[in-house]
């Protein structure tokens, strides 16, 4: 019985002694840290995706607390609301950034852009890109081996086996930008997120002349420039026979969609305009249309 008591006593004394030592060491070497960092980190989504440009949510929280001007910082996953509440908590001005969504800008489905050869190497878009143009013959189109899918931490990208193209699940996408970096063809862009998954974008990145594009893909942008002429908001620019729609300037009037002869301008989440629009004044008509849809 004596040995048992002795053991318990020794361990208790040792424990108490070490606790005292640890207490003083902790006091002596305490790292002064703003307690708000922990609070802000808790408010952030904790995805550690790196979409903000920092290594993780902790680093972002530190930057939010320590920097005076936080208008350049934005967590794409949390969105404007959470950023606003964090800014309110810290007593700083809230960064105003509209939510974005990843958009895959290639419309070359298996039917419109048939495969002309069979690839037998490593199944990675980056590898295919080092070898040659890809199975379809279009040097700009989606390769379809899913480097972006592997990069996505939110399960927001999927390969549609019917079209052979990668599709974005708008509800799951957080606009962290990982897929943008992963795509060797630079097909994915973060564009303004409209309500009800609405979007208008040019689903083609080919800088080739129209005749060359048409040879390999029936859904390609051929550089006719009709869309730019019809746009009233200066949102469309055509450069080296490729149009680009600025999602910040676009008002979703859908006129360009009807003009496009190949259907390269994609419309999502909305009905297209009737084929023959009335000869009324265009501007008010646009407003009426948007009002109806909302």
């Amino acid at each position: 019985m004596n040995e048992l008591l002795l053991t318990v006593l020794t361990l208790s004394v040792l424990g108490a002694l070490l606790a005292v030592i640890l207490y003083f060491v902790a006091q002596k070497f305490r790292v002064e840290e703003d307690p708000r960092i922990d609070d802000v980190e808790k408010m952030l989504p904790g995805a550690n995706c790196g979409g903000c440009g920092f290594a993780g949510c902790r680093a972002m929280a530190e930057a939010l607390v320590t920097r005076d001007n936080i208008s350049s910082l934005n967590c794409p996953v949390a969105g404007g609301e959470v950023m606003g509440s964090i800014a309110g908590f810290l007593g700083k001005s809230a960064p105003q950034q509209s939510p974005k969504v990843a958009t895959m800008r290639c419309g070359g489905t298996c039917a419109k852009r048939p495969k002309i050869n069979h690839y037998d190497g490593a199944l990675s878009c980056a590898v295919v890109n080092t070898f040659y143009v890809g199975e379809s013959g279009c040097a700009f189109g989606c390769i379809g081996y899913g480097d972006c899918i592997a990069a996505c931490k939110f399960d927001a990208l999927k390969l549609n086996p019917e079209t052979g193209l990668v599709e974005v699940d708008v509800d799951k996408c957080t606009a962290c930008g990982a897929c943008v970096k992963a795509c060797p063809k630079a097909l994915i862009e973060l564009r303004k997120k409209w309500p009800k998954n609405r979007a208008i974008y040019v689903a083609c990145r080919s800088k080739n002349r129209g005749a060359v594009v048409m040879k390999v893909c029936k859904a390609g942008y051929i550089g006719c420039g009709k869309c730019a002429k019809v746009c009233q908001f200066d949102a469309i620019t055509v450069e080296s026979s490729l149009a680009y729609i600025d999602s910040e300037k676009c008002k979703l009037c859908r006129k360009c969609v009807n003009e496009c002869p190949t259907g390269a301008i994609k419309l999502e989440g909305m009905e297209p305009l009737p084929k023959e629009p009335k000869v009324a004044a265009p501007k008010p008509e646009v407003k009426v249309e948007t009002a109806k849809n909302e």
Binding site: F131, Y132, V133, G134, G137, A139, N208, V212
Partner: peptide, 9 residues
């Protein structure tokens, strides 16, 4: 620009 053997222009 024309296509080379790898299809690149």
């Amino acid at each position: 620009g024309y296509a080379n053997g790898q299809g690149q222009r």
